[in-house]
Amino acid sequence: MKTTAISIRPDSGTKSFTLLGYGVMAIITIICFVPFWLIVAASISDEATILREGFKLWPRTVSLDAYRSIFQGSKALLHSYLVTIFVTSVGTLLALLLTSMTGYVLIRVDFPHRNGIAFFIYFTTLFSGGVIPTYILFVKYLALKNTVWVLILSCLLSPWNIFLMRNFMKSIPYSLVEASKIDGANDLQIYTAVMVPLSKAGLATVGLFIALNYWNDWYHASLYITQEALYPLQYLLYRMLSNAEYMKQAAAAGIFLDTVSLPSETLKMATALVVTGPILLLYPFVQKYFVKGIMIGSVKG
């Protein structure tokens, strides 16, 4: 990191900034951490204790029932992990490619329709036709019901990510584009040789958002996927939860035939963790692009 090479004695402003920064961030970090810890603690608690005594920072009784009922159908769980990983990785790569290309086109001042197209894209955030026509499109005309493609396609491009990308690329000095053009590079070469390497932080951010979106999406699965083998992780767990919840009530209403008792409060907690885990592992890889000054070397080179 270049900044560390230059040593300037910290002035009082920097000191107060640093001090305040640690203080504020420490408090915020704690506020964000405590609820998550409560989830961890609750997920390994005993269902009845949670219902009777509420959340505790330290579980008094330890029970792994919730995890047991998640991993009981471990084949289905494994399957759903594979589906989610496939959808997330393929979808993210594809989406990132298209998003960054669009962002690039939209900053090229020599592209005449860029404002028109920007509006064309933005407009889709304002109006949507609702679920039914989209469903007809996917199911009747594209015959994509019960395929992974419907999951990939429905979240592929978001105007927000495109505009965010455009915004990142705008901050790259435009003179670089012009210089490469004079050097005889074509549009695609400028994109791959100049824009992509220079917008790493942007790509990391947008890529993270796209990946999170794919990872968390259970909604489209609830519309288009009715075969258990194709359930993505989030939807599998979502169904598990809502069924546990329903059975509890149905049993009391006398309409449920089997007397099954499922942990439901602790299940909520455990699923939250099972779902969050892997994507958290991804985060540190993205994080390294957010370090101040990461751009400097590349611009010089």
Binding site: I121, F127, G129, G130, P133, L156, L157, I162
Partner: peptide, 17 residues
């Protein structure tokens, strides 16, 4: 491809309004 995507998946369904 981006324009096609938005036409098919965003503009076409707008008839739903």
């Amino acid at each position: 491809p981006i324009l096609v995507y938005f036409i098919i998946f965003a503009y076409l369904p707008m008839v739903g309004m």
